[in-house]
């Protein structure tokens, strides 16, 4: 049994860190240290995305990216969150749920949207059943483009957001 664990361990350590990721990650870590006192908690909401964005967001937590080591954590409740990460074009059915999730967050708070749908409806633009972008329902501070955005892009843009956010 121990043997198995060791083999798997070596697999995890191999290729963990690419230079770009380390650079971005360290910058992210120090920004979060300064502005959020060590940790940034994000609540994710899917408002009708196809699931690819979710898959990439989950990928940022795998051992190869491991966004948690930079101080970013995805939390289960909006009440614990500093930021809201929203995907999807906002379907009519999800509009109220999105608004309520946002309202449930304590202030100060900010909103990041991820993926082309969340910006303006993306490929679903013009449908009878979407609101067409998250900004129609709640104020949006930052956007991560892509269909879906890659994990490294997500981390980059979270860094950008944290850099530019004003905290009192």
């Amino acid at each position: 049994m121990n043997n198995i664990y060791n083999i798997a361990k070596s697999r995890i350590q191999k290729g963990v860190v690419t230079e770009e990721l380390t650079l971005i990650g360290e910058a992210l870590k120090s920004e979060i240290q300064k502005k959020f006192n060590r940790s940034l908690h994000i609540r994710e909401v899917d408002t009708g995305s196809c699931g690819a964005c979710e898959s990439e967001i989950i990928s940022t937590t795998n051992p190869l990216y491991d966004i948690q080591r930079f101080g970013v954590d995805f939390v289960a409740s909006p009440r614990h969150a500093d930021a809201l990460l929203v995907t999807g074009p906002v379907t009519l059915n999800m509009a109220v749920a999105l608004k309520r999730t946002y309202d449930a967050m304590p202030t100060p708070k900010f909103v990041i949207t991820a993926g082309d749908c969340a910006f303006d409806g993306g490929p679903f633009k013009g449908s009878y059943y979407i609101e067409g972008g998250v900004s129609k329902i709640i104020p949006v501070d930052f956007h991560v483009p892509g269909c879906p955005p890659k994990p490294i892009d997500l981390i980059k843009h979270i860094l950008l957001a944290v850099k530019n956010i004003k905290v009192n």
Partner: peptide, 27 residues
């Protein structure tokens, strides 16, 4: 909750555009 009206969106599109849409039905 994730109903986006995909089947209606296909209508009137060229097959090339439709293929792109089909790839966004389930990520």
């Amino acid at each position: 909750f994730t109903h986006r009206g995909v089947e209606k969106l296909f209508e009137g599109r060229t097959v090339q555009d439709s293929l792109k849409l089909a790839e966004c039905v389930s990520g």
